[in-house]
Amino acid sequence: MGKDWLELTSEIMNNLYRSEEASARGDAALIVISLFFAGLLVVAFTSNPIATGTKPGERAPLFSGKAYNGDGWETFVFDDLLTPEWTPNSTDDAPWIAVEFMDRLCGHCVSAASEVGDWSETYVKTSNWPGPDVLFVAVHVEFQGSSSRADIEDFRDSNGHTFPYFDDDGVGSFKDWDIGATPTYFLVQPNGIVAWNSGIQNLAWDAVSEESITIGDPNGDQRVKLNEAIEQITLSYGGATE
């Protein structure tokens, strides 16, 4: 049985080796595979793709829809907040972006609302903050129950927030941002790269060295808060300097 199988395999291999048609296919395959890999190598050596995701160093997923800005529900496009040409050495006033995924029915979001409001007013140049402006955006998700747009308006206004509240209902950006619980905070570089993710805590992205760095926990409460991340990350290379 074993011998038959061996003889058969040997015969097939022998036929393949002697067959001119098989040789033509093999030669053609070699040419084409070489071309394919040459093309891939050129692309690989001349570009440095960045994956889309929410880990530090990845490109933040884009989203768009309707957001409440205090006057009404207007079209909101996350890309519009970005400054694609920003570099760590930029001297322009490109703002960083803080994104909060929250649910008005989540207890932690309710208790954090006051300090988030304070941070949104602290990290702007007009408040003597030496770093770059940080734009805040709240993305309202429905993890605990349903909320109407009127409920979202009430929540924003009753907490005195001045930043836009994006309604994620029907958009589902929380899936792209891999949100498992609320509140979850992100700090995004002006060029759209995630600098910090509260789910990953003390790991941040250094735009200069283009690698992950560890940031501290100044309060020693075993967790890095959004304001601590903003102060450690944006000030470490000056941000907007002019």
Binding site: G39, L40, V42, V43, T46, S47, N48, P49, I50, A51, T52, R59, P84, E85, N191, G192, I193
Partner: peptide
Amino acid sequence: AHTLWMHNKLSEG
């Protein structure tokens, strides 16, 4: 291949 290169370049910003 050029469009793949563009895809990568655009992901860089």
